[in-house]
């Protein structure tokens, strides 16, 4: 973006140096600074749809044909361009399946370029593990590949209900960095278990009952034993409850019995399986017990939100952003058990 901008000004003979606007004098010439900035912003805007790849977009190759990109453990900001969730792809003999696409078009684009560095095989599936914006807004970067967009049976409806809010918030929080990001609905709905064939390699896709959200999918690459958990597993990043706390806990109980060579959580890195999911289980079990206790004591919601704590020794990331939200969701779910 910066290079594009500087190049454009150079082409017009309007470099800041020609105006005598050396870096040191910027502070004293606010009008010129603003004019330049405004012009530059306009260029950035018009060129954002041809977004440059993210400069530091890294992929790892833990097993043959398996590629993972680990997003930053943060909220979406202009600086990280919404690159906060774990994404990846699996390469078969015939074609490539993408698993989650990132929080903006720019991230999806970077992922697509990463695929092209590895293989020229077509992208035949784009799988979204769930509706959250950090996992789906890069879908638009794959539109030209005309893949099958795969999601949980509830995903299309959830995207329609939540999508406009997600898009507003994305534009609000990321501004021009969000340009090109769009809602892309699934073209194939998964209601229970399915296999997707990539040629000599198949992925098992499973739709879960309401847990992290009411439309979570996991993806299992049989040849490498790699299990993509989406946000059914958080490592480091505080787990988020946006579906059902009880459902989340029962999904975890079941997941713990699954054998896998490696797992890819939705956020953070998993060292060993199933040990990687233990801190999340502890956090959610305590949340369940503490919210139940608050309800039994007749504590109103607003006080419970401020009063129900968590184990600080676990050193969760982003707890200040998500813990109170989790208490709210848990309270609204569990109060009907009383």
């Amino acid at each position: 973006m910066n290079e594009a901008c500087a190049a454009a000004f150079a082409a017009w003979g309007l470099t800041p140096a020609l105006w005598g606007l050396t870096p040191a004098s910027w502070g004293q010439t606010p009008v010129f600074t603003w004019l330049f900035a405004a012009a530059c912003a306009a260029i950035t805007w018009s060129c954002a749809v041809c977004a440059e790849p993210l400069p530091d977009f890294q992929i790892e190759n833990p097993a043959p044909g398996v590629y993972v990109h680990y997003g930053e453990q943060a909220e979406m900001t202009p600086a990280n361009a919404g690159d906060i969730a774990n994404l990846g792809f699996v390469v078969g003999d015939r074609c490539v399946a993408v698993i989650d696409t990132g929080g903006t078009y720019a991230v999806g684009r970077a992922l697509r370029l990463a695929i092209r560095r590895v293989t020229s095989k077509p992208v035949c599936y784009v799988i979204n593990t769930h509706v959250h914006p950090d996992h789906v807004f890069g879908n638009a970067a794959f539109a030209d590949d005309a893949p099958v967009f795969v999601g949980h049976a509830t995903l299309a409806q959830s995207l329609r209900r939540r999508g406009p809010n997600y898009l507003n918030a994305l534009t609000r929080d990321l501004g021009a960095v969000a340009a090109g990001s769009a809602l892309v609905s699934p073209t194939h709905a998964v209601a229970s278990d399915e296999r997707l064939d990539l040629g000599g390699r198949s992925l098992g896709v499973r739709a879960w009952k309401t847990a992290h959200t009411d439309g979570d999918l996991t993806v299992f690459d049989e040849s490498s034993g790699t299990l993509w958990l989406g946000d059914l597993c958080f490592v480091g990043h505080l787990p988020v409850v946006d579906g059902s706390l009880r459902g989340f806990l029962s999904a975890i109980r079941e997941l713990r019995t699954v054998t896998a060579q490696r797992v890819v959580p939705g956020h953070g890195r998993a060292a060993a399986w199933p040990a990687a999911i233990a801190p999340q289980a502890r956090y959610l079990e305590r949340l369940l017990a503490d919210v139940r206790a608050a309800l039994a004591a007749g504590t109103p919601l607003a006080q419970a939100i401020d009063g129900v704590g968590y184990d600080a020794a676990e050193r969760w990331l982003l707890a200040d952003r998500f813990h109170k939200r989790n208490v709210t969701a848990a309270y609204a779910e569990l109060e009907w058990d009383e």
């Binding site: 909220e75 979406m76 959250h132 914006p133 950090d134 509830t154 409806q157 959830s158 209900r161 939540r162 809010n165 997600y166 918030a169 994305l170 609000r172 929080d173 309401t210 959200t213 009411d214 988020v240 946006d242 579906g243 059902s244 952003r321 939200r325 969701a329 609204a332 779910e333």
Partner: peptide, 14 residues
């Protein structure tokens, strides 16, 4: 408003 991954829609339509 809340963060970008929170929406006012219901949690479990079923």
């Amino acid at each position: 408003a809340s963060g970008g991954c929170s929406a006012p829609a219901g949690k479990d339509a079923v």
